[in-house]
């Protein structure tokens, strides 16, 4: 059964159509990578799923409860089922709280356990995220960026949620520290079995951590596939361009690649293009793309989803050349 089921989710900020009809699901124990560039709506989607912002329309089912339009009072007891790790641990931890209190806060809010069991739980969590027990008495400024992000992860997991949203959890960190946070999330996810929506622009991190990948462009999903299928043969022209643009850390491979350079830039989400939102930049667009919105539909034998008129039902897709 799905831990998270998002149905036709819409979130508008005034005229900005940040998320414009997204449906997806995440199963128990699964990591879904949500990739896209700035302005794609991926962060907003993560915030809608955790109800940090009100939802304009659509449904967000977490463990069988639609939380999209619940009042704060009705939502509160359900909040222990899901939590979020933010991008920048320096600004998402209260500098005046001790690490132990930060991690115990979800337990206090949900009235889980008493003081001594909470203290024991904090010690257990610190151990799980690879920090020493005495750090419970420290303040965030005494920790490095990577250690702070470990505290964020411990806080998010303290009430044992079944869904974790990780919003660019490694983007503010150095490469060597990124590796340790990715390892940590991967290990905890395997051990504890929570479902994870991993929001990032880092394709290498997604390939490392996610089992399935959803690609977002200008408020809508353009492709959803298993990691192996997506990275081996991206079908949507935008996915193809995105994958080809991310430089590989290998000079031989990188310099022998065919790169697809997109013309123009991501249009404004205030006034997205009609038809396929990618058509003004798409090298293979046809007349139909400018008028008819392509549905996100199953293509090929595996059940992968693509929203493109040029991808055939059998999954064959136009290959973009440089």
């Amino acid at each position: 059964m799905s831990v998270l089921e998002v149905v036709e989710l819409v979130k508008h900020f005034g005229p900005v159509r940040a998320v414009d009809g997204v449906s997806l699901h995440i199963d128990k124990g699964e990591v879904l990578g949500l990739v896209g560039e700035s302005g794609s709506g991926k962060t907003t989607l993560g915030r809608c799923v955790t109800r940090l912002v009100p939802v304009t329309s659509g449904q967000v089912w977490v463990n069988g409860n639609d939380i999209a339009h619940l009042s704060r009072r009705r939502l509160r007891p359900l909040r222990r089922d899901f939590n979020i790790v933010f991008q920048d641990p320096s600004s998402s931890l209260d500098p005046r709280m001790r690490v132990g209190d930060i991690i115990a806060e979800p337990l206090r809010l949900h009235r889980i356990g008493d003081r001594s069991t909470r203290r024991a739980r904090v010690a257990e969590l610190l151990g799980q995220v690879g920090l020493q027990a005495e750090m419970a008495r420290w303040y965030p400024h005494e920790l490095s960026g990577g250690q702070r992000q470990r505290v964020s992860v411990a806080r998010a997991l303290s009430a044992a949620p079944s869904l974790l949203v990780a919003d660019e959890p490694t983007s503010a960190l150095d490469v060597s520290v990124q590796a340790s946070v990715l390892n940590l999330i991967g290990r905890l996810q395997a051990e504890l079995g929570f479902a994870c929506l991993f929001v990032t622009h880092d394709l290498a991190a997604v390939e490392f951590l996610a089992q399935r990948v959803a690609v977002m462009y200008l408020g809508v999903l353009v492709e959803v596939a298993t990691r192996d299928e997506l990275f081996a043969g991206p079908r949507h022209p935008y996915t193809q361009a995105l994958l080809s643009a991310a430089p590989l850390p290998d000079p031989v491979a990188q310099r022998s690649r065919q790169r697809i350079v997109l013309s123009g830039e991501v249009p404004s989400p205030v006034d997205p293009p009609p038809g396929c939102r990618f058509h003004p930049r798409c090298p293979v667009a046809i007349d139909r793309c400018a008028v008819e919105v392509p549905a996100l539909r199953p293509v090929g034998p595996s059940g992968a989803l693509t929203a493109c008129h040029l991808v055939a039902d059998d999954g064959s897709a136009p290959r973009l050349a440089a």
Binding site: V175, S176, Q178, A179, S180, N183, D202, F208
Partner: peptide
Amino acid sequence: RGLLDAVPTPGRPVLKEIPGRV
């Protein structure tokens, strides 16, 4: 070597970490 190994690479189950900090 540590920097190069820390980059996520497909097929590597666990990334190499450099313990500590600069």
